[in-house]
Write a protein that binds this DNA or RNA. Structure first.
Lengths: 223, 223
DNA sequence: AGTATATTCCAGTGGTCGCTGGAACAGTAG
DNA sequence: CTACTGTTCCAGCGACCACTGGAATATACT
């Protein structure tokens, strides 16, 4: 007699699912985690995640529709932040559930941490062999100027600080070999960290460009 | 230079989103809530939610793929249950976020709770319907002896003078239905006053045990 | 064996989502 | 005013998702 309310009840779950849908995308989860660390502008988020600005903006609209984020305007840019502390505990809780329920999460974490054999640099001879066979691309992560003056023949120029933006151009099927100035240059290792975190297969070339040139191997110049 | 610190990012977020996708559907949230109250067979879930069996089965597959539910076979039917306690706290956390972030949830919930005036007693038919759906627990507030001799099947025994001590065992998400001896028994109204004062959702069952028994509805005895 | 019940598997279809590129819209600086 | 930057809006597309009906599978009952 009284409205036992299937429509009301499902209406509630409909609302719950709005929150669920908001965290149904890896990109949005990534954004939320960043926003839980502090407010950021749209393009700062784009740079940090390697997504296009348009895409970030759209995801932020989605998060905003679920009221999970708030925003503040400052001049021409708009800063987003997590709506409150509870949404941050919620996403960490989400991660915790994933950790305990999905065995591959632990596996991925472990793999990333002690992938020491993968951290072993590739020798120049090995790289040449792989290049002849294909399935391997070489990336120069030094600043553009250095690339222009000289680089390994066939290498692409993706400076470290632009790497995040160009991830979508990189193939997941091939091995990515990064190099920079020499054995003590930190650019390449940092690039590897980023690439591996995103699930790419990446190795470092032993030493750097000077040693490559010294070995008499093919180089090129210009852009 | 945004060279992100060597922390796991996107590969993991892909996994996190598996959990998110699982709770991106109102139907699946509804199923999870039911499964957190105890294991149920597929068609029991279908009956409780009004969905087709096929559809329920498919949603259960989805939840199973995210490892959020576990299953057990007994003869021809298969009983599903929440995988562990953590997933249940997760879905209630989801509801809590929805509650604080989405204003319409409060509005809906209010409608749902006292849609038919909170003080109005619940009819027996209505109680039966709600019990089939879950989301409702029945409490017998008479002295223990009377409970032992006969009580509504499935009811918990919490005598009025012990109610205050057992408040922490009662769920705030479910509707609590109290009953005692009959329409003029004062135990149940007093219990309601206490429960409501503490923020529980509580209603009274119309009349009392004798009328329930007279209607031929299921009762039990013992402790 | 045959029948019945509970569950899952398998297309097919309409709808929604994610991403992109291009255009529109602030707000600021010159 | 114009030029510029940061952000959002919009159309379009490919991919994925939810639900359905019908068939296949598994177990129990007689």
């Amino acid at each position: 007699m009284t409205a036992s309310p299937p429509e009301l009840r499902s209406a509630l779950h409909e609302q719950f699912a709005r929150i669920g849908k908001a965290v149904a995308s890896p990109r949005r989860i990534e954004l939320l985690e960043l926003l839980c660390q502090g407010e950021r502008s749209v393009d700062a988020l784009a740079r940090a995640t390697g997504m296009t600005v348009t895409n970030v903006s759209q995801h932020l609209q989605a998060l905003s529709a679920a009221r999970l984020v708030a925003r503040r305007r400052d001049g021409t840019r708009i800063y987003y932040r997590a709506a409150d502390e509870q949404v941050c505990t919620f996403v960490t809780e989400l991660g915790a559930v994933a950790r305990t329920r999905l065995p591959e999460v632990e596996r991925l974490a472990a793999e990333y941490i002690d992938g020491s054999d993968q951290l072993e640099p590739l020798t120049r001879a090995e790289l040449l062999r792989r290049l002849r066979r294909g399935y391997t691309i070489v990336v120069d992560v030094r600043p553009t100027e250095e690339y222009k003056s000289a680089h390994i023949k066939g290498a692409a120029s993706i400076p470290l600080d632009e790497l995040a933006r160009h991830l979508h151009e990189l193939p997941r099927t091939k091995l990515i070999v990064a190099y920079c100035r020499g054995p003590y240059c930190v650019l390449a290792p940092q690039a590897l960290a980023l690439l591996r975190a995103r699930g790419f297969r990446a190795r470092r070339l032993e030493d750097g460009l000077p040693e490559w040139r010294a070995a008499g191997l093919p180089i090129a110049a210009g852009s």
